[in-house]
Amino acid sequence: MENNFCVSARGLTKKYSKFTLGALEFDIPMGFSTALIGANGAGKTTLIDILCGVVHRTEGEVTYFGSDKDIASPELRERIGYCASNAFFPQGFTAKDIAISMELAYKSFDRKKFAELCEKFEVDSEFTKKPRQMLKQSDGNRMRTSLAAVFARSTELLVLDEPGSSLDPLMRDRLCDRMRDYLDEGDGRKSIIFSTHNIADMENAADYAVFMDRGKIIEIGFIEDLKEKYIIARGEAKDYEQAKPLMMSSSANRTVFDGLALAENAEKLAEMGVDSETPTLQQLSIGLLKYAEEQR
């Protein structure tokens, strides 16, 4: 039977002295873009580092593409493209050094494509006269160069840690387009996992979402399904106390209130005169993270 998950985890745990990730159980669907969403310290980067073999898990199993290959396998690493949130490449490296290093490290690295992508992302390429070292570039340009390098490889899974955090809104939009193109090129065989705080800007790039809080997954699913599962309830302040028990998280001022609620409560809320609407990913994220915070 064909496995339709690019990554599956069972009992995945990472223990640090002051933080524990997991135990996580999840299946990330193949052919889609998955957003890891959570507050700072939720464990997104730790999870990404484990998935890419940068950090070792303490317990549990991770399966990639339904095969039994471990992330230590060079063959598997060739299929996975990884980009860390900042200072991914050495500070002394120029685009030329990156090209030399990546060409030696990865069989599928396309040096010409890397130069083209660098030009498309408006950063120094290896053919730029006197390309600048990473140290002398802004965070945004460093991220653009790192993204150009990872997109210049032939991979089946991209794992990007905060790819949009240091990019300007226009570049974030271009990145979303590039991510969409990547998925389209794969025809259902290529997947992306990325973490983000810029939920509104990256919403176009995400199909599936994993919400994390303090090392645990609090919600997971296709964004379209989650938008049907939850609603944003909005009403007048006088109805707040009555509606509050039906909402997961909410906030109110003197005149109005709004909050996240389960769609199954929409009818009851409507009877109270409370309107409901489909949440955006941003509203969903804030509502779920607030709920998790209140439940601690």
Partner: peptide, 21 residues
């Protein structure tokens, strides 16, 4: 590069067969 605080550490750790390299 063996120090996590050094830029490039994660890149080198993520390459295939990184320990052997």
């Amino acid at each position: 590069y063996a120090n996590p605080a050094t830029p490039g550490h994660k890149y080198f750790l993520s390459i295939p067969d990184s320990a052997e390299q």
